[in-house]
Design a protein around this nucleic acid. Sequence first.
DNA 1: AATGAATGAGACTTCATTCAT
DNA 2: TATGAATGAAGTCTCATTCAT
Lengths: 209, 209, 209, 209
Amino acid sequence: MATPKTTPGGGAKEKAGAGGAVPVPQRLMAAATRLFSERGYDRTSVQEIVEAAGVTKGALYHYFGSKDDLLHEIYGRLLRLQQDRLDAYADAEQPVEQRLRRAAADVVVTTIDNLDDARIFFRSMHQLSPEKQKQVRAERRLYHERFRDLVQEGQRTGVFNAATPPDLVVDYHFGSVHHLSSWYRPDGRLTPQQVADHLADLLLRALRP
Amino acid sequence: MATPKTTPGGGAKEKAGAGGAVPVPQRLMAAATRLFSERGYDRTSVQEIVEAAGVTKGALYHYFGSKDDLLHEIYGRLLRLQQDRLDAYADAEQPVEQRLRRAAADVVVTTIDNLDDARIFFRSMHQLSPEKQKQVRAERRLYHERFRDLVQEGQRTGVFNAATPPDLVVDYHFGSVHHLSSWYRPDGRLTPQQVADHLADLLLRALRP
Amino acid sequence: MATPKTTPGGGAKEKAGAGGAVPVPQRLMAAATRLFSERGYDRTSVQEIVEAAGVTKGALYHYFGSKDDLLHEIYGRLLRLQQDRLDAYADAEQPVEQRLRRAAADVVVTTIDNLDDARIFFRSMHQLSPEKQKQVRAERRLYHERFRDLVQEGQRTGVFNAATPPDLVVDYHFGSVHHLSSWYRPDGRLTPQQVADHLADLLLRALRP
Amino acid sequence: MATPKTTPGGGAKEKAGAGGAVPVPQRLMAAATRLFSERGYDRTSVQEIVEAAGVTKGALYHYFGSKDDLLHEIYGRLLRLQQDRLDAYADAEQPVEQRLRRAAADVVVTTIDNLDDARIFFRSMHQLSPEKQKQVRAERRLYHERFRDLVQEGQRTGVFNAATPPDLVVDYHFGSVHHLSSWYRPDGRLTPQQVADHLADLLLRALRP
DNA sequence: AATGAATGAGACTTCATTCAT
DNA sequence: TATGAATGAAGTCTCATTCAT
């Protein structure tokens, strides 16, 4: 694998002259994200991606080792984003109740803001190559555990109802987060923030002692 | 299109002589269900299905109009099952609190009992042909509305907290139901009934006034 | 892999009506043999093979699992032929001198008669998949050993000069056999039988005590 | 086409400062030789060659006009070497019997010492461009004829058996030389010199009157 | 009721080579 | 002297479906 295949889009070399020209790797990622989200990974051909990005197949394979790699990059982008945000909320100096509420609401807003990524995530994960899947799952587990620790802390300190196993509580909340990409429409009645507040409320109410 | 393609497996014509032989359409459905669940709809070839069912391609196309039809049948099977059960719980003569709790728990157990069907449902819906997808969505909406009406009834009568829009409550719960196929393992610590009770508890607690 | 992929061309079902129609698998083998010999395995595309055979790519992959399989079949055909003939000569009731001479001459004639197969054999063996290569090598080794045993027998009984290790004698002779496909031209001065007699003479003279 | 493409590696311009650094053209030739021998010409990509040599594609195309050129260079190197050695042996002041024996043995040792080159030679010649192939064949013919003249001389003077056409004798011997790259292993029981002596013995014995 | 040979379009990927820098 | 992004053609193989039997 040639060098550029590792961190596509990392460099800042843009086409001279065209001030706002978006670099090829980014164009490819954007096209792939939209298409994967619209019609699914398997139903999107490499040909369609490169046409949408305005490049040739050779260019795609210059930057990405495989179609699978594109999917992996999309995952990585979302995972890093969400992990960073969760860490920030979890590390805050606040009562656990507030930390959990904010983290729970934030992941909803972030998911809605990146609804294409999210839809791809929940729908196409099993289409990743086994080894990449393993890697993604491992990162996902870290995220889950961080979230679970918040629940656990609240239960231990008596702030939350301890009747439900904390792992199950996390899956409960993330079920509703995953589900967002199935029903949320940007033109619907509720803003992302409103949805987030409602879902966080439901979670916190469910955890009241 | 030959006659049997309309309601495959409906008739009881089994291979003469072989008392317990499973009819071909059922064998095909079972094989397709397992394979679609394991590796996804697009990654399962018709050839693999017929091999797993022990028949030939001609036989499949004798009973089903297309690969797509198999998927549609799996959906129909699950949808009918869940709609029937929900109707029974919703029509019961009990306080709305109990009716909702039982319906919410039951759909969890039913989903776990049919985890392959459920996984296919949440993962491959967008691979159905547009018209079949429309039909499935319409049936799904009926189901959703029936469930929502229970929530609404409780909110109207003051039994449930009315702070959250009832549609959102339904999506909240069904998010966690969909998510089951991503994490539930039959060999895990919790039985289906225990998971169902926990999730119903969380829902009911979230709805406390 | 579907059934027909195992022994292509085994069945005798020919196109009704066309009395002398050659079955598809044979047509494919013949086209592949000619093309592989002419321009090498890697330089021959599947497209070219099916065009030469007058069928479609789908048909090729119906009968053969891969391009590699075609090559393997060509090998199998030649190996079986040569092994059978060597066995017949080696088992004959004759002095070892005559048995070796006849076997040595026969393999020359057979090689010339199947010069395309032979050229493919010596040129493209390393393009077989590793496991098929292993299998071919094993069969080849049996052939080599059978031939070597003849040399050894003559050396033990004093009929042949024992100065050279018998394995080396075999490689010596088969080197010249392999080389035939590099220089022999059907329109040259010597008939296959004449070449065979000369090469067998050289071998036998080299083995004189 | 830039100047250096004609005689790559001929100049002695090495990287200033790095005393023992091997010049780029040589590094490329060495890498190509190893890879072509290991996996064949067509199966070796330009990318692999430049990676193995530690340079980039641009560098390769700076020194060589094409991938094909690399192959041609390898041929040229071996051909020049062998022609020079044969000339030396053939011109020696010795009885023809000794001159032939020494030449025959020497080509065996030289071939074993350059087994990668030899393997490439006998396996990938047909992958050269037609015109380069013609050129190589012409040089090869000169070599063959020089060798044949030795045989002929011996036959004319009665030192060798004249029963076999001299061209055939040459092909006979060179068949076994070509074949070396198929079976000789450096870790085997026989040293290059021993193999050479055995093969020369066989040839000379086959030529006894 | 069922077979299985055959189709033909389209899938992902590789690669030698060029060219602006 | 050397880079490496980009090309574009060609490569092997898969697959849902049809149809004569």
